[in-house]
Design a binder for these strands. Structure first.
Lengths: 333, 333
DNA sequence: TTGTAAGCGTTATCAT
DNA sequence: ATGATAACGCTTACAA
């Protein structure tokens, strides 16, 4: 296996200087036709491909963007579709900008350290965070280093990093209003993890909405997964067998609640109404189909990416961008 | 925002040479204690992080591995879980090796070109392909360039690139045998796309199994998605209203078939038995729970990764690695 | 329009 | 054990 050819060798073969080859490779227009032709031929014959490390060492650009998911792979690729949706949106937008997506999972401390090394090592032109746990200082650190950074979800703690989030409170308020309108009065919630802003804000939304209506609250906690939803639902039924509605902070938990309710002999929606949050694609396929609060997940990814690219281009961007949520009524209420 | 500090500046601050700082940063043991200490302090004070491009320019390593999915993001992040499962497995194994995962979606021609540029540009130490369409020449090209490459699924065409695949034929044979054993005789299939090896082999498996049993075949085509499965199921019912079993080449298509059958007034499994392929996590949650052929998806990712790392380390590896499939009987048969 | 040459920030090979 | 110094492969003033 021959050594990979360099600019030098292409130049020699084409009978020109390295600089000229570089110009042709990078599409400069100031090179004479026949020379361009000769260079291209040499490139093709040698199978030349530029060494990206060498290039970015001088240009200070890498044309790639990191999307960091501070989660174990198990969480990211549950059938939750939230992370995939964000990835999808990001990748669409990056595709349009002809930039490369570098996906980094950072569930473990080692992963977190690796991400830090990679991003601070100038290996990417910017960093996107999809979800944050607790008050992770990394986004703030990167931003302080001058590395363009955008988060999904308001970062907890002191950091002032631009972010994109959805209107959690508004969505929950509409869901609860919908339940109240249909006569429900004993409305429980299966809350999400309280170290994540989505979990926190949805629970706050529930509390505020019930308080405004003068109704009592009933809370059990899950971590957005199906298993945790089933456990929480069982707990709620134990504590309050006569509850007549449940708002789950994720569709996955709502789905498990549906099944748990049925297993307990209750009818949905006759005995208990169920509302989820997310509107993942299988929500329309549950039994019965799930009423839920839709959040425009893919849109989050797209908006984050556009903001990041503008930031990287030196533009000023808003500190917060909030996207709307919508109630999607189906048969579970 | 000050310019990022370089080795040089750290060296000056610590009162040593660049070489010494490099040694400390890279964990060399041949540096005296007090000097190490001084260097570390300078690194911390300056917030120094090595420039990865400069490093890989000389080391010829990047400590990152590309996972290429020649698919549109829509396909990759459907709720299919196959790609996510592979990503998951790969990322687990890469985590153990402390290497960075670079995920590349290459659904469009532009994406494909970007991937080619990136991988041939020595931006990664090796390349994993998760699924291939048609006889994509890229894996062969990379392998010929001496870039460690491993595919998931046997590459079509002339290429001799090492790959990992599952025993499609064996799994399908067991599924069909299971149907025949339970008295089914008019067994249709919803086949996958015929430009992908998984689609091809599962259909071949079905044909072989039915031929061996002396039963007639009935085939409709989908592309592994739910929508295509619903359409294919309707077509099958039109053509053969009295069919008594369906083998779908993916769980998503099987799920849609379940629903389509019910909508047509048929009972599953009384009137029609349904078997899927994949065993995605929601297969246990369909109505009724889906009998399916489990393929060890995450394992595919792990095995591919281990092979790639060995290849990158200069070891010899097998051309083909085939993982077993298992029939998971549930209520749909 | 083309070529020359000076870096870019590391690591690695030598001496010392 | 530490320090010069030469690469690594590319882009980009600047000169011609």
């Amino acid at each position: 296996m021959a050594q990979r050819p360099t600019l030098e060798e292409v130049a020699r073969r084409a009978g020109v200087s390295r600089a000229t080859v570089s110009r042709v490779v990078n599409g400069s227009t100031t090179v004479a036709g026949p020379i361009q032709e000769a260079v291209r031929r040499a490139v093709a014959e040698l199978g030349y491909a530029p060494n990206l490390a060498a290039r970015s060492l001088v240009t200070h650009r890498t044309d790639s963007i990191a999307l960091v998911m501070p989660e174990a792979a198990t969480r990211v690729f549950s059938d939750d579709q939230v992370f995939p949706g964000i990835i999808h949106g990001v990748s669409q937008e990056l595709e349009a900008a002809d930039k490369q997506l570098v996906l980094m999972l950072a569930g473990s401390p080692a992963g977190h350290a690796r991400v830090r090394r990679y991003t601070t090592g100038r290996h990417v032109d910017g960093v996107l965070f999809a979800s944050l746990h607790g008050a992770d200082p990394l986004p703030g650190t990167l931003a302080a280093l001058g590395i363009p950074t955008v988060c999904s979800g308001r970062p907890l703690g002191e950091q002032s990093v631009p972010y994109v989030d959805v209107d959690h409170a508004g969505g929950v308020a509409r869901a609860v209003a919908h339940l109240i309108d249909s006569g429900r009065r004993r409305i429980a919630t299966i809350a999400g993890p309280q170290d994540m802003v989505a979990g926190i804000e949805r629970l706050t939304g529930y509390r505020d909405a019930l308080a405004a209506a003068g109704l009592p609250t009933l809370v059990a906690y899950g971590d957005f997964t199906r298993d945790s939803g089933a456990a929480a639902m069982r707990e709620l039924l134990d504590r309050r067998p006569d509850l007549d509605a449940v708002f789950a902070a994720s569709d996955l938990m709502a789905h498990a609640a549906l099944r748990t309710l049925r297993d307990s002999g209750r009818q949905v929606p006759q005995d208990v109404a169920v509302v989820g949050f997310d509107d993942i694609s299988s929500a329309a396929y549950t039994e019965p189909p799930l009423t839920t609060v839709r959040q425009p997940i893919r849109q989050i990814g797209r908006v984050m990416t556009r903001l990041l690219l503008r930031l990287a281009a030196g533009e000023q961007i808003d500190q917060a961008t909030i996207l709307p949520t919508t109630l999607i009524p189906r048969a579970s209420t």
